[in-house]
Amino acid sequence: MQDHFFELIKNAIENYMPANKIFGLKIMEIKPGFTYIHVPFKEYFVGDFLQKRWHGGILASIADTTGGVAGVTCLQSPKDKLNTIDMRIDYLHAAIAHEDIYAKAKVIKNGKTIIKVDIQLFQDQNSEPIAVARCVYSVLRTKNEEKNIIDN
């Protein structure tokens, strides 16, 4: 059941969210409390046209989406709701144009009403992160008499 649930999440995130379709976002790995995402470079992601760097807002959107996907893996029912309530991002290095972005997110707190997630963005999978973020999501958990959907 868990694999089926994660495939549904992957399909919804990649194919039914217009911004993610524009990004070309692909979920490379998804498991409880973790996700790994790839976003290919596109020319219209450039924010600094003189130095040819990714736009910081695009990077923040990728971080928020990656964190949100990790958070969704902690939900207990398809009717549960997850919303971003806070986000902090530190840009450590410029994101160079013509290089893809990879993002990894790990849930650090799965509480009754909030989920906290740490996210790292990379351009080379073996390098230091170009940015780190922490996102906090509010969770509205529905009362569900069925077992946790990812435990079935």
Rank of each mutant, 00 (worst) to 15 (best):
M1R: 14
Q2N: 10
H4N: 08
F6M: 03
E7S: 15
I9W: 00
I13V: 14
I13N: 02
I13T: 06
E14K: 01
N15D: 03
Y16Q: 11
M17G: 10
K21A: 10
I22P: 06
G24W: 01
G24L: 02
K26C: 12
K26F: 15
I27A: 07
E29R: 08
I30T: 05
I30W: 02
I30Q: 03
K31Y: 06
P32F: 08
T35S: 15
Y36I: 07
Y36Q: 11
Y36K: 15
H38Q: 10
K42T: 01
E43P: 04
E43Y: 06
E43N: 10
F45D: 03
F45W: 06
F45I: 04
D48N: 13
R53W: 05
R53D: 02
R53K: 09
W54E: 02
G56F: 09
G56E: 00
G56T: 00
A60P: 04
A60E: 01
T65E: 07
T66K: 07
T66S: 10
G67D: 03
G68L: 07
V69E: 00
G71V: 02
T73L: 06
C74E: 07
C74V: 04
Q76I: 12
P78E: 01
K81E: 10
L82A: 06
N83Q: 10
N83K: 15
M87N: 05
L92H: 14
A94H: 13
H98P: 05
H98G: 07
A105M: 09
V107H: 08
K109F: 12
G111Q: 13
T113S: 13
K116R: 11
K116L: 13
I119V: 12
Q120A: 13
Q123H: 05
Q123L: 11
Q125K: 14
Q125P: 03
S127T: 04
E128K: 15
P129N: 03
P129L: 02
A131R: 00
A131Y: 02
R134Y: 05
V136L: 07
T142E: 14
K143Q: 13
K143I: 12
N144K: 09
E146Q: 14
K147I: 10
N148T: 03
N148I: 03
N148G: 01
I149V: 05
I149G: 00
I150C: 01
I150G: 01
N152A: 13
